[in-house]
């Protein structure tokens, strides 16, 4: 198992290497002039030439790439070209917000998707199944930002049930330790603030979780239906087990397998969706930061964020695959 993990981690290296090339090329192909972005109205040809020389932008692309790769290997993900703050420092401050939002969306999608999928499977071809299918079709069809705005308008502005902006009431002041609102509020001994933070999390989580919810629901339904027809389920019934035990021990345990894989794959979608969701809900996370960085042509930030997100995606899927080995004894990682 350890060997498998090491091998998988080693296998991630060429992926990240390839990605670094793609990102580098992509950033350099983007239209826009860093001089204008950085110097703004102070842009003169002379200043621009000096800046380009400082940033090494006049060197051949291969030299620039190797320099970029060298700093990556030293763990240096660069700094903002706008304010020169190191990428990693800024990223780590904002990332907890994105983790919180992503986990919120995942809890929503998994917590609702699996029961809905099981319900639809048990009543397959009935009106209930139709309703669940319609919900998931809706969830998968509607773009995150549209659903986000609808939620803001209906539950925030219209009904006034839930806050629609930020991670916590902006008028409240308390010390941030971990930058996880749900943890910091508890550390500060303020359960009232904790509740407020949870309330802030609800609408963005629903908006971001709608697509994974739809996918998880459908996969769960399909998987449960498929497993229900397996011979070993009939064997389990023939043993005289209760329907509940057959369902939980024999059907669900096997139905989980494809669902687990899909949940892992959804993490990529969630990180991407977080960019849009954070913008709609003025959520202080990596996503909104990246959107700002794109606007400012702060390409180091964009580049490094994508790289880190890719790394996270790889690690999450590695964790899922390892978890899969525990769920499925037929998989042997040797």
């Amino acid at each position: 198992m350890i060997r498998y993990i090491v091998r998988r981690l080693l296998g991630a290296i060429p992926v990240l290497f390839g990605l670094s090339i793609v990102l580098f090329a992509f950033v350099h192909l983007l239209p826009g002039d860093p001089c204008s972005a950085i110097l703004g109205q102070h842009r003169t040809e002379e200043a621009c030439a000096r800046l380009r020389a400082n940033l090494g932008l006049d060197d051949p692309l291969t030299v620039q790439y190797l320099r970029y790769l060298g700093s990556l290997l030293r763990g240096d993900l660069g700094a903002s070209v706008i304010n020169n703050k190191p990428f990693l420092d800024e990223f780590l401050v904002r990332f907890p917000g994105t983790i919180e939002l992503t986990l919120g969306a995942l809890v929503f999608a998994v917590g609702l998707g699996i029961p809905l999928g099981r319900l639809a499977a048990r009543h397959a071809q009935s009106w209930l199944d139709g309703v669940v299918t319609a919900i998931s079709l809706f969830g998968i069809s509607i773009p995150v930002f549209v659903l986000g705005l609808v939620l803001v308008v209906v539950f925030g502005v219209g009904l006034g049930w839930l806050p629609t902006q930020g991670r916590i009431d902006a008028r409240l002041r308390f010390e941030s330790v971990t930058n996880f609102m749900l943890i910091d509020t508890l550390l500060a001994g303020r359960p009232d603030l904790f509740v407020d933070a949870v309330r802030h999390l609800i609408l963005p989580s629903i908006a971001l979780g709608s697509i994974p919810l739809a996918i998880i629901t459908r996969i769960t339904r399909a998987s449960v239906i498929e497993v229900s027809h397996e011979d070993y389920v009939r064997t389990a019934r023939a043993k005289g087990l209760t329907e509940r035990r057959v369902d939980e021990r024999h059907i669900m345990r096997n139905a989980w397998l494809p669902v687990t894989t899909v949940i892992g794959l959804q993490v990529g979608g969630l990180l991407a969706g977080a960019v849009l969701t954070e913008t709609v809900f003025v959520w202080n996370g990596v996503g909104r930061w990246v959107v700002d960085a794109i606007g400012n042509r702060d390409l180091t930030i964009v580049q490094s964020t994508i790289l880190v997100f890719a790394l996270i995606f790889l690690v999450v899927n590695l964790i899922v695959d390892i978890g899969y080995a525990f769920l499925n004894p037929r998989i042997r990682y040797a």
């Binding site: 397996e230 009939r234 064997t235 345990r253 096997n254 499925n328 004894p329």
Partner: peptide, 12 residues
């Protein structure tokens, strides 16, 4: 049952 290959639960 007829099918010993599929009549046992693979995960136990």
């Amino acid at each position: 049952f007829q099918e010993p290959m599929t009549s046992l639960n693979p995960v136990y």
